[in-house]
Structures are given as structure tokens and as C-alpha cells.
Write a protein that binds this DNA or RNA. Structure first.
Lengths: 125, 125
DNA sequence: CAGGTATTGAGAACGCATTATCATTCACGA
DNA sequence: TCGTGAATGATAATGCGTTCTCAATACCTG
């Protein structure tokens, strides 16, 4: 029972509710019950990025993730166990002080890695 | 004039002299005059990483780079123009303060992006 | 100098993320 | 209800980084 163009709504809602950016694969899985195809997921996120609604987040050694573009400045935490990516608030700042002489700083990214709350719990048991 | 096993010396020296981590492709290019093959480059860096001499640096949206493992804690700057990666000294620290409740922090990475000294000069002209 | 072994380079093959293809299906107006 | 154009899903194809295959070559020992 796929509803055309309803897909965009579903993807947008999913990204808004998510605790961090999602990959195309994750979106496809989370919306599996709607019958959406992977190709459509890629089409919608690509369109969304071009339209400025979504932002593409490049993960080191992983697929591109997507998040709504209206979130305030933040960074990301990747779980080394479940590989999900979470938003984290705050920013160390003062990156211009780290920039070498003669270099021009344009942007910065901070990636934390470790275990998310769920996976940390598992480890304790 | 390829000298077998001399290749490892050449790769090691190159990585030591480089201002930052190099990709397999960059190593292959920089050592083109030695006649080294790309497959050999991959073999040597893989072996080096397994042996603990080199460290694999994952670049967002780019190929794995390699650097000597005996460098002190540092981060990286990627030039948006020439796409070379440079080491930068210093670290903002205090990442545990950014880590959400219940999460376990294992490591962190900081990526700065902008124009390197050479490419900044170009822009001025 | 001959034989055995490890290394090498070229190119094929692979894995993965992403994009293109195309027949089918759906929405919507006449 | 029928026709038309846009959207969709399955799958083939692509691009790129990396690994594998294998014949040729270099080193080493006797």
C-alpha cells in the first residue's frame, strides 16, 4: 500500500524524530513498513539536500548521513557497537587558534566515538 | 630501477617527511619515480598498520590516509582546494563534557576544513 | 651459475554506496 | 471511466577504493 509522495513526509518526519543523522540504508529500514524503495529514499534525500531542507553529513569510513537543516550548530557521536550516529550539543570552539599560519579556516567537525547509552548498558551486563 | 623491499623504506620515509597523512594514491604518485605499483603501496601500508608502525586515518568522504604511529596526539586540516591533509597541533580537549549521559567516550576526532597556505595564496592573486 | 622462495606490478575482481534504467502504478482532470 | 504525466520499486549499472590473481622478476643460498 505505497502512497506516492507521502514518502517525502515520512522521510522528513523520520529525520526530525531521529536522535541524529540517518543513512539512506537506515531510512529505508525504518520505513520498510511503508514499502518505500531504496531508490526512492536516495531520490528524496538528494532532492531535500538540493532544496536546503536536509544536510548531508559525511561520516568517516561510513555512508553519508542526513539530518534536517534547521538544527543549531552541533556535532556527532558514533557508537562503535551499533554504529548509530547521535547529535551532541555544545562545541569546544576556538578552532582558529589551532589553524596554522597562512591557512584559512572555513569549517570544522568534531566526531566523538564510543558506546551509546543502550550499548553501554549491554557492556555492563 | 625497482629495488624490492626498498619500497618499504621509501614509503616510511615519505610518510615521515609529509606534513600530514597521505592516501595510497598520493603515496603511489609521490613514489612514481621508483616504479612502485599501487598494489604494493596497499600491501605495505596494510602491513605497516597491522605491525603498528602506521596509523590509518579515516577522512570524511575521502580515502583512508596513513601516517607514522609515533606522532603525538594531533588532529587534521583538509584543504578544500587541493584536498591535501595536514597535521595540526593542539586539541580543544574536554570532550567528556560534550558526551551525553550514559554514553561512554572512547576517542575523538577534530577535522578542520579550509584552504592551506599555498591555496590561500592563490586566492589572493 | 642454478634452483627455490618471496616480492612485485598490471590488471582483474570485489564490496559498497550511489545513480540510472524502465516497466508499472498512481494521481488527477476530462 | 479513460488518458496522461509524474512517481515508484526492482534491479542493473556505475564509480571508487581496495584486494586478489598470477606471471615475471629479484634476492639468496648452495
Amino acid at each position: 500500500m505505497p502512497r506516492p509522495s507521502e514518502h517525502l513526509v515520512a522521510v522528513t518526519d523520520l529525520l526530525r524524530q531521529a536522535p541524529g543523522p540517518l543513512s539512506a540504508h537506515e531510512i529505508h529500514e525504518d520505513l520498510a513498513h511503508t514499502g518505500i524503495g531504496l531508490a526512492t529514499v536516495y531520490r528524496l534525500v538528494k532532492r531535500g539536500v538540493e532544496a536546503g531542507q536536509f544536510i548531508a553529513v559525511d561520516i568517516p569510513n561510513g555512508p553519508t548521513h542526513y539530518e534536517p537543516s534547521d538544527r543549531p550548530h552541533h556535532h556527532h557521536f558514533e557508537c562503535t557497537s551499533c554504529h548509530r550516529v547521535f547529535d551532541i550539543e555544545g562545541c569546544p570552539g576556538h578552532f582558529d587558534e589551532l589553524t596554522p599560519e597562512g591557512f584559512t579556516l572555513e569549517s570544522h567537525e568534531v566526531f566523538l566515538r564510543g558506546r551509546c547509552d543502550a550499548c553501554s548498558e549491554e557492556g555492563k551486563a
